[in-house]
Structures are given as structure tokens and as C-alpha cells.
């Protein structure tokens, strides 16, 4: 009799434990967000998306807490100190947009050693123990040229607008564009300027180089620079080329005006600021005990002639299109990266 009861009791406990692990195991876990900069529209949109998603996650008791910490300056040591303080605070995971890919490794390693899950995105960290959520910028660059081939089937001269020099993102998009041009030899890049992902900088840079260029059929860029380029072409009285857009509100607005005028077609792509929420869910999945590869390649956010106008009213003035990811998105992204 007694052993039988024991077995029943054991199996009851066992099934209770199983049931527990099948549900979210992360109810008691705390996730912190270490952010090094909040001073532009993209970062503001990033924080806003994060706030929306994590507030709901906390309310639904998926996690116990999801706090955001922004450093006062863009300095590396400040963020390193911040990470160390988050370790002391007893967080279970840290989602981070890092100020330097390498110089935070000391602090990141300390966090890993303390058993904390570190997930980096946008500004990623190279420390092997951390997870990296990387947007496929190279493919984005390649796709720009592929899309351009659809709009300009005869080919022709292209102007390239580069981003902030020395960043990995600029490098990746640029390489993607070069690869795209290799696949589409009908295009030739005749000029390259630095636009720093900023409309005014791009406008000035394009205006300076325009008089010396042959006729340009298309502009391949990195986002945040398309509207500036359009202004520069208009001011110089040059024919309007096909300008790839970067999901900024002013860019899509201009596209809409042009489309209404004469059916202008182009394509728009950029990294969604809401990728912060994807990083959050990835951290949650790791805490949940799921097996997750340390490098996750996730798609960028693109809009076409058919769907950009539906998105436009949702973007605040001066901001950029975002997308809040769900837990399911993270699970799908993890599955897609498992080989």
C-alpha cells in the first residue's frame, strides 16, 4: 500500500513539475535594458516600442520586471559601469544596445560569469558569451539594387549615399550594394557621398557632388537620407531619380506626394527600432531554458509601393516606421537561425 501511495505522490509531483515547465518559467525573472543613447528619433522610437511590449509582458506576468536604463553620456566607461550595477541589482538578463562592440567585453563577461543572460542588438557586442540580434544589413543593400533593377530595367548610373563612417552597419550595407551591382551589371555606381543617415547632411553632400555627375537614374542609400537626396536633386533642377527610401516619415510622405503626382515607384527598407522588443523576447526565451544560437540574423522592415501608404499615418512626424515584435516572432526567428 505504502509504496503505491509513494508512487502516486511522486508521479503527481512529477506531472506538476512538468506542467510548470510547460508554462512560462520566467514569471519571476527580471530583465534590464542597458541603453547608451536616447537623443535621436530612432532611439526614441526604440524606447517607445520597448516600453509598449515590456509593459504588457510585465502585466501578463511573463516576466517580473523590465526596466530601462539610459546612460547620461555616450561614453563607453559609463555603460560598463552601468552593466556592473545591473549585475549588482540582481537582474536575470540584460538587453543591451552597446556603445562599443569590443570595449564593453570586460563588463559583459562579468555579467555572464554572474549567470546573467546578455542579449545585444543594433549596437552589438563581440564577447562570445553574449547573444547578438543582428539585422541582415548586407541583404538589405543587395535588395536595394535588386529592387532598383525592377524600376529601372534599362540600368544606368547610380549614386550611393553612405552612412556614419567606421560603423559596422555602414560597412554591411555598402558591401551588400556592391554585391547587388555585381549581380546587376547594367548598373554602375558613379558617385558616393557620406550622408550620416541624416537628411540635412545627405542633402548638402548630394548637392555638392551633383554638378560633377553624369545623369543618375537611381540613388541607393542607407535610410534617413532619401528625403535630403530628393531635395538636392530638385534644387539642382536635375531629373528626379528613383530614390530608395529608409522608412522615415518625411521620406514616405514625399514618396506619397510623388506617387499622387505621377505614379512614382520606389522601395523602402530600414531596421525597425522595435528590434529592441525582439531582443527582449530572445532574452525571455533564453531564460525560459530554450536553446538559442548566439548569433541571430533577423529580417529588416521593408515597404513596397502597395503597402507604404497604410503605414504612413502610424508614424509620428519626424520619426521612423517601427514594428513591435511578439514572443512568437522571436520563436520563429530562433527556429530560422537553427541549422
Amino acid at each position: 500500500m505504502k509504496p503505491a501511495i509513494l508512487i502516486v505522490a511522486m508521479s503527481a509531483i512529477g506531472s506538476a513539475m512538468l506542467a510548470g515547465s510547460a508554462l512560462a518559467d520566467t514569471t519571476g525573472k527580471k530583465i534590464a535594458f542597458s541603453n547608451n543613447y536616447a537623443g535621436n528619433s530612432w532611439r526614441q522610437a526604440m524606447l517607445k516600442s520597448y516600453d509598449i511590449v515590456t509593459k504588457k509582458a510585465v502585466a501578463d506576468k511573463v516576466v517580473a520586471a523590465a526596466d530601462v536604463f539610459t546612460t547620461a553620456d555616450k561614453e563607453v566607461p559609463t555603460q560598463a559601469a552601468q552593466i556592473q550595477n545591473l549585475i549588482l541589482q540582481g537582474y536575470d538578463a540584460i538587453v543591451i544596445n552597446a556603445s562599443s562592440p569590443d570595449a564593453l567585453n570586460g563588463a559583459i563577461k562579468q555579467a555572464c560569469d554572474a549567470g546573467i543572460v546578455v542579449v545585444s542588438f543594433d549596437g552589438i557586442v563581440s564577447e562570445p558569451c553574449a547573444y547578438r540580434v543582428v539585422v541582415d544589413f548586407k541583404d538589405m543593400g543587395k535588395q536595394e539594387v535588386a529592387q532598383m533593377a525592377k524600376f529601372q530595367p534599362k540600368g544606368g548610373n547610380l549614386l550611393e549615399i553612405r552612412g556614419l563612417a567606421g560603423t559596422s552597419i555602414d560597412e554591411a550595407i555598402h558591401n551588400g550594394i556592391l554585391e547587388g551591382v555585381k549581380d546587376h551589371p547594367e548598373f554602375k555606381i558613379v558617385g558616393s557621398v557620406t550622408g550620416d543617415w541624416d537628411q540635412t547632411t545627405a542633402q548638402k553632400a548630394v548637392a555638392t557632388v551633383l554638378p560633377s555627375l553624369p545623369e543618375v537614374v537611381g540613388v541607393v542609400d542607407q535610410g534617413g537620407d532619401g528625403y535630403g537626396a530628393a531635395q538636392a536633386f530638385a534644387a539642382a533642377g536635375k531629373p528626379r531619380p528613383t530614390i530608395i527610401m529608409g522608412n522615415r516619415q518625411d521620406e514616405l510622405e514625399w514618396w506619397k506626394e510623388q506617387k499622387a503626382k505621377d505614379g512614382y515607384t520606389t522601395w523602402s527598407a530600414s531596421i525597425a527600432p522595435g528590434v529592441s522588443t525582439l531582443a527582449f523576447w530572445v532574452a525571455q526565451q533564453v531564460l525560459d531554458g530554450k536553446k538559442v544560437p548566439h548569433d541571430l540574423l533577423v529580417p529588416y522592415l521593408a515597404f513596397t509601393q502597395a503597402d507604404f501608404e497604410a503605414e504612413l499615418p502610424k508614424i509620428p512626424k519626424g520619426s521612423v516606421a517601427s514594428h513591435e515584435y511578439t514572443q512568437q516572432d522571436a520563436i520563429d526567428a530562433i527556429k530560422a537561425n537553427m541549422k
Binding site: 553620456d73 561614453e75 566607461p77 562599443s100 564593453l104 567585453n105 570586460g106
Partner: peptide, 16 residues
């Protein structure tokens, strides 16, 4: 000492 702690360098690391 700063590099001893961060383990890796960055040209802007000391600006603050």
C-alpha cells in the same frame, strides 16, 4: 587601468 578593466580599446573611451 581602464583598458585592464574593459579588456579592449576604443578611441573615444576616455572622452568623458
Amino acid at each position: 587601468s581602464l583598458i585592464g578593466i574593459t579588456t579592449s580599446g576604443d578611441a573615444n573611451i576616455g572622452n568623458g
